[in-house]
């Protein structure tokens, strides 16, 4: 069974193709991504209209490339899956409309799926099967802790950011330090030459009375800004590497601490990382260290599968087809605030 997956929730137009064996083992055949990130760079963040325009231009060519890579053609497809939400409304709409048209034209079922659940499902194409897991999903658009007992079943949200997404904090701090957008890879790179203990930045929402599994990165971002401004006022050169390393340490310390705590509390012995921030080298290292110490198994898909892509949507779609989930109808909306408890519309 062949599933085509379409993802357009943010600035990546992703088209993936997954083949599901009769035993339910997914195999990734293609994962084509067209990114409009460079068009957003000068705006310092993703501009929804720019992203939507780029999706429209990139959609059909990305499908073509995916078929070419997989060595398949349209009639080989048995189902179409698409990110129905959450994400940028206008961007989602392009992918959802395209998916409906492909599904109708090929006369195959459509599955409108949840973007966050798809971030979890993508791990199966690399490390099948996925046991019940505690998932930490961190990107420019989301920061969530989820309990995922079963891929097709209900996902329990345990916590989420109450202000900025983790990736957004990376972008904003990068800008403060004069580093390009998107900030994640640049902070990661700059931090390699810095001392993570040079400056003690605050760990948001880690007090005894704070929500145990929610995140807050806004205060941290402000603390970094104050620190940098104080240095600038004093005419001191900003030690970019130390600030980057100390900021990154504060973010990854909170993320991993809360993740391990949640895994223990909810009795999950597998932890899964996903989202663009999961490509951060310090997050991966610290998660590995703390999971090992806590006796937890850590699973991190390779970086190309962590960032938004079509393979994750195809993987979740394939799983839903395999377990006999009811397909979506062609009236489904793109839902920018789709709750994570809803895996399929």
């Amino acid at each position: 069974m062949i599933v085509l997956g379409i993802e357009t929730s943010c600035d990546e137009t992703g088209v993936g193709i997954v083949r599901m064996s009769a035993a339910g083992v997914p195999e990734l055949l293609a994962n084509e991504i067209a990114s409009s990130v460079e068009e957003h760079a000068r705006f310092g963040g993703v501009v929804p209209e720019v992203a939507s325009r780029a999706h429209l231009q990139a959609m059909v060519p990305a499908v073509h490339r995916a078929f070419e890579t997989a060595g398949l053609t349209g009639p080989d497809v048995d189902a179409v899956a698409v990110t129905a939400g959450p994400g940028l409304a206008g961007a989602l709409l392009v992918g959802v409309a395209a998916a409906k048209a492909y599904a109708a034209a090929w006369d195959v079922p459509l599955y409108g799926v949840n973007h966050l659940a798809a971030h979890v499902a993508v791990d199966t194409v690399q490390h099948w099967p996925l046991p019940p897991a505690l998932a930490l999903l961190v990107s420019g658009g989301h920061s969530s802790l989820l309990a995922v007992p079963d891929l097709a079943g209900p996902v329990t949200p345990l916590g989420a950011t109450i202000d900025d997404a983790a990736g957004e904090a990376f972008d904003k701090v990068a800008r403060l330090l004069g580093l390009p957008f998107p900030g994640g890879p640049w902070i990661d790179k700059a931090a390699r030459d810095g001392d993570p203990a040079a400056i003690h930045f605050p760990r948001g929402l880690t007090g005894p009375r704070d929500a145990p599994f929610d995140f807050s990165f806004s205060g941290l971002k402000t603390a970094v800004a104050r620190h940098v401004e104080a240095l600038e006022r004093a005419g001191t050169q900003v030690p970019v590497a130390d600030v980057a390393a100390s900021f990154q340490e504060a973010v990854t310390d909170v993320l991993t601490r809360k993740t391990v705590k949640a895994a223990r509390e909810f009795g999950m012995d597998t932890v899964l990382l996903g989202g663009g921030v999961a490509a951060n080298s310090r997050l991966r290292a610290l998660a590995e260290e703390r999971c090992t110490a806590a006796g937890l198994r850590l699973r991190v898909p390779r970086p190309g599968l962590c960032t938004d892509n079509g393979a994750m949507v195809a993987a979740l779609g394939a799983h839903l087809v395999h377990v006999g989930a009811t397909p979506s109808d062609l009236e489904i909306p793109a839902n920018s605030s789709m709750p994570v408890t809803e895996v399929l519309v």
Partner: peptide
Amino acid sequence: VTAAALGDA
């Protein structure tokens, strides 16, 4: 995008 995808498919 509907037209483009239908035409393509």
